[in-house]
Structure formats: C-alpha cells, structure tokens
Design a protein around this nucleic acid. Structure first.
Lengths: 140, 140
DNA sequence: TCTTGCACCTCTAGTCGCTAGAGGATGTAG
DNA sequence: CTACATCCTCTAGCGACTAGAGGTGCAAGA
C-alpha cells in the first residue's frame, strides 16, 4: 500500500505525466493526496483507474464516454445498458471509419500506381486531385 | 468569365464560406480581388483550386501536404517525385490506420457480444476496459 | 553540509483544422 | 425605402493533449 509519485504512476500506467495532470484538471481523475512538499502521491488503486482510461482511449472512446464508463464502474449494481450502448456506438463508428478508409486506400493506390515518375504534367496524383471525376469511386 | 461571390464559390465547391476565408488566411488560397464594397470576388478558375483542396482534404491529406501539392500543380515541369512521395506516405498511413481499426473492431465486437445485458458487475465491456490482459489481442 | 541534477509544481500558450459568434457593412428584391 | 440575406473582420472555442517558462522539492554523492 505504499504511495507512488506521479512519475512512477506514469511509468506504470503508460499515461504521460502532463496527461495525468490534465485528466485531474478535467475531473476524470480525482485529485490525489499530496506530500509535505505539495507533490501528488497516488495510491496503487489509482493505477487501475489510469489503466482503464488509457485502455479506453486506445480503443478510441472520447473523454466524455470514458467519464460515463467510469461512473458505471464505480456503481456495479447499475444495469449495464449504457456501457453496452457506448461500446456499440463506438463499434459502429469504427466500422464506418474502416469502410471509408478502404475507399481512400483504393483511391490512393490508383494514384500511386498511375504515377509514371515523370513530370508533374503527366502525374496521375495531381491529376486525380484536380478532378474528382477521375476517381474510381467518386462518392466519398 | 464572370466573377463569383464567396457564397457562390462555397456552393459550387462544397467548401464552406468560413473555411474558404480560413484557407486564404493561412495562404493556401491567394487573396481574390474585391468588389467596390470590399467583398471577395472569385474567378471561375479559383473554383478548380478549391475543388483540388477539398478533394485532397477528403483523402485525408494534411494542409501542409496540400500546400506542397498545390505548388507542384502550379509548376508542371517539375518532376513528380514529391507528389508521389506524399501520396505514398498517405497510403501507408491509411493502411496502418485500417489495420489498427480492424484490431479495435475485433476487440469491441468481443466486448459487445460478451455483455449479458445484466448489471455492471457482470458486464464484459467494463471488465475488459479495466483489464487490458482480457483483450483478445493485447498489443494495441 | 553542500551541491548537483532530476523530478516535481503551476500557469499559459500552442497544436490542427476548422467552427461559432459578435457587431457591423453591403447588396438585392419588392 | 425597407427588409433581409449575404458579406466583412475579429476573437474565441472545440478535443485531447503537448510544450515551455519559471520556480520548488528531494535524494544521492563529494
């Protein structure tokens, strides 16, 4: 149960020091106790919360979504419908993003393949950018 | 060859009015001539440039990359190696992004499937977030 | 004990690519 | 002439940090 400095918490959680302070500032993390010299001193249990946030951020959840998820975690007797809804919404976002990135990928591949490595006036990269009609799938 | 107001340019190019002014402000678009009453008045040829920018933005190119691409377009005798390099770099970015989003998608699907729609203390969504080790592929 | 040097503190400002709003001028249709 | 839409400039805000200035705390070596 020994206390941890912010630097140690950063190392163990993988969340950077200024980011931890930022999370505290926006109320995502409650303010820890302080040492005599006014330095933040964390409980080991704070690391769980930090890991939770980090993981959720890696999965692309927005801060406000994470705020809700943390509140749910704090009150385990609530129904988990909201958590489910947040995750489902995120899944749909990700699926859409993948679809649109796949379209972009196809477009970029055509551009790059079509580049004859000559001069700009024969370059398909520039040409396609200048004329959307030359896209393979012009509906992006 | 008749002149066009900013609103009309916005309608025809699909770039919003404040965004056109913003592009002018950061020097992506050269300042157009003005009417007697100080209102911007565009040439039809400005619409091409606007369309180019819009298309490049849709493909996810950053403003600085677009700035370079526009310079290349303005000087068609240059070799197109830079354009090619920019497009290739963007392609690699997109491919990486797709890979990482596919990993996220798998993760989110597991979370959502595993949610028994009961209470938070049995919810896989919360559980997985709290413990990265429960991920299917913990290397994100 | 002193000093070195890193880690910590707060605060402000910057990043990117816009977007929103205030407060006022211009242009056009009836 | 009067509405009303559109235009103008300017500043501030968004999300999620990141960077830097200017100062304090703390542990270890000489």
């Amino acid at each position: 149960m020994k206390k941890i400095t912010i630097g140690e918490a950063a190392r163990q959680s993988g969340v950077k020091v200024p980011t931890i302070r930022y999370y505290e500032g926006i109320g995502l993390l409650s303010a820890p106790s302080r040492s005599e010299g006014n330095q933040r001193s964390y409980e080991p249990s704070d690391l769980n919360r930090l890991a939770f946030i980090r993981h959720a951020r890696e999965l692309g959840f927005e801060i406000e979504a994470i705020r809700t998820l943390l509140q749910l975690q704090d009150d385990p007797h609530q129904p988990c419908a909201s958590a489910d809804a947040i995750a489902k919404a995120r899944l749909i976002e990700v699926e859409q993003r993948i679809r649109s990135l796949n379209a972009l990928k196809a477009e970029l591949e055509l551009m790059v393949e079509g580049c004859g490595h000559g001069r700009v006036d024969q370059c398909r990269v520039i040409e396609v950018l200048a004329d959307h009609g030359k896209c393979a799938h012009p509906h992006h």
